[in-house]
């Protein structure tokens, strides 16, 4: 069927197979390969995107379900090629290693910050607990978010709950 949706502020109209999930639609039909497939079963969070502002696993959403929706992916994070403050913070804190979970991680943190501009550490952990990372041990990711929200100086050492 034909769907119409907005992705990173741009309108798309496409004919799409009704069985195709949003992840494959983004990657294969639109070439937006920043969103990654880690399991295809909604378990790892690598394919996280914002659907009408809410983080979802795009492998569990059919493309047709996104008809008339607003989607945001990692490609919408930098503006005119300039890194967002969140991307800069992750880069600065070495919160990216292999990078495969990073796009999904960015989406989940973005969703958190839009609701809560000054999340504390348990709130950050809760927001990204659906995004598996096998490289970093998460500490540098959490530090990046604390720094971004002006909370790192007061908290030299993380006091993880």
């Amino acid at each position: 069927m034909e769907i119409s949706l907005t992705i990173n502020g741009k309108n798309y109209q496409r004919e799409v197979d009704e069985t195709k999930n949003l992840l494959h639609f983004l990657r294969e039909d639109l070439g937006l390969t920043g969103t990654k497939e880690g399991c295809g079963a909604g378990e790892c969070g690598a394919c996280s995107v914002l659907l009408n502002g809410r983080p979802v696993n795009s492998c569990l959403v059919l493309a047709v379900e996104a008809n008339n929706c607003e989607i945001r992916t990692v490609e919408g994070e930098a503006v005119n090629g300039e890194l967002s403050d969140l991307q800069k913070a992750l880069h600065k804190h070495h919160a990216v290693q292999c990078g495969f979970c990073t796009p999904g991680m960015i989406i989940s943190i973005r969703a958190l910050l839009e609701k809560n501009p000054q999340p504390d550490e348990p709130e950050i952990k809760q927001a990204i607990e659906g995004n598996l990372c096998r490289c970093t041990g998460y500490k540098q990711i959490i530090e990046a978010v604390l720094d971004l929200t002006g909370q790192l100086d007061q908290k030299e050492e993380l006091t993880h709950a």
């Binding site: 920043g34 992916t73 991307q87 495969f100």
Partner: peptide, 15 residues
């Protein structure tokens, strides 16, 4: 900072 960090945070690194 990581050499390939910017393409990775932008989702532009090619796997």
């Amino acid at each position: 900072e990581r050499q390939e960090g910017i393409p990775k945070v932008k989702g532009q690194a090619i796997y």
